[in-house]
Amino acid sequence: MSWQPTLAHYLILAAGTFSIGLIGVMVRRNALILFMCIELMLNSVNLTFITFSQYRVDLDGQIFGFIVMAVAAAEAAVGLAIVLHIFRQNRSVNVDEVTELQQ
């Protein structure tokens, strides 16, 4: 394995950061950090898209990355509004304490 980055290097890096984001979503209980980890996973997927886009010399992957970014922006806006609302109701952003729908 040489130092020269190849397709596999980028893909394994993307898989690694995706897994780290996945651990974060499952382990952290702070809603804000949960959202950050979701953004991290979206970014890793974007990196995979762009890597394949460069590998195949095809711009479609970059267009998809652009769309993913726009969706992430929309998701962050709505998600943070929900976090704000939850904090007003519970005085906490711990997602384990959000159990209204269970009752």
Binding site: I20, M26, A31
Partner: peptide
Amino acid sequence: EQELGERQFRLHHILAYLTAGIVF
């Protein structure tokens, strides 16, 4: 500190690391 949501180690954390490891 209290509103952040405590982060003590629980059993399902092992499962979380295991799942992410399998995905990777």
